[in-house]
Design a protein around this nucleic acid. Structure first.
Lengths: 115, 115
DNA sequence: CTTCTATATAGTTATTTTGCTATTTAGGTA
DNA sequence: TACCTAAATAGCAAAATAACTATATAGAAG
């Protein structure tokens, strides 16, 4: 929606937290980190808040907050099934950020290597 | 020095600020953004604090603070010549971060594309 | 030796972030 | 209908961040 007013700094800030990075790594490969879910597939639908809460050792509202923070910048997407909320990683957004960093790094390398 | 206790989150947090990102882009290609310096080469030695301060429109101590923040995580290096402090981008660090993001994104893509 | 200049440090304040507990909401289930 | 269960929201406190002004420091210049 209001996706456009989103800066690279917003994205980086969303990733700049140990807990959120941990969650991100879990969501990148959910089957390696969580048991199967009754309603909703770990990979296709995402991971429910409860599983993440149990594993990370923070309160449920705090975890919801971290997930919403990631969702706001489009790094994860959420979906409701029954009364579960499933969060799933959006790799495109990460690749987008990767490209932005790559550009700066490449410019600097090019400039610094010049005669 | 105590470079090892540095997490990816620390790096991302350092980059997650509009002003610091702006400075980074300037430092990636200093000759496109700053006039030549009397003592110290823009590319080889880095850009002095004063130039950055003038261009960004923040107070000098605030700029020093941002630069030290970037230096602490190794994104820039600093060098003193006479009584100037020159800050220079370290592209390796950015590439390192890029690689870390790339890994997570690649894992997620691989997992999500599986049958 | 004094003065000037560039940067760093100290100290303060406002804002943002991160966490919590308590409560609300909304969808199932007995 | 009344009751669970999962997640979201509200409200609050502590800590971190980002900015400023004033001051200290260290090297150069006179």
């Amino acid at each position: 929606m209001d996706d456009d007013a989103l800066s690279t700094a917003d994205l980086l800030r969303a990733l700049g937290n140990e807990h959120r990075l941990t969650i991100l790594e879990w969501l990148a490969d959910p089957r390696s980190h969580f048991p199967e879910q009754r309603d909703g597939d770990l990979v296709d639908d995402g991971v429910c808040v409860g599983f993440i809460t149990d594993k990370i050792g923070l309160s449920q509202p705090t975890v919801t907050n971290h997930l919403q923070c990631l969702a706001k910048v489009g790094i994860v997407n959420s979906k409701r099934i029954k009364n579960w909320a499933f969060y799933k990683l959006a790799p495109e957004r990460l690749q987008q950020l990767e490209a932005a960093l790559s550009k700066v790094a490449a410019t600097a390398s090019r400039i610094q290597k010049s005669p």
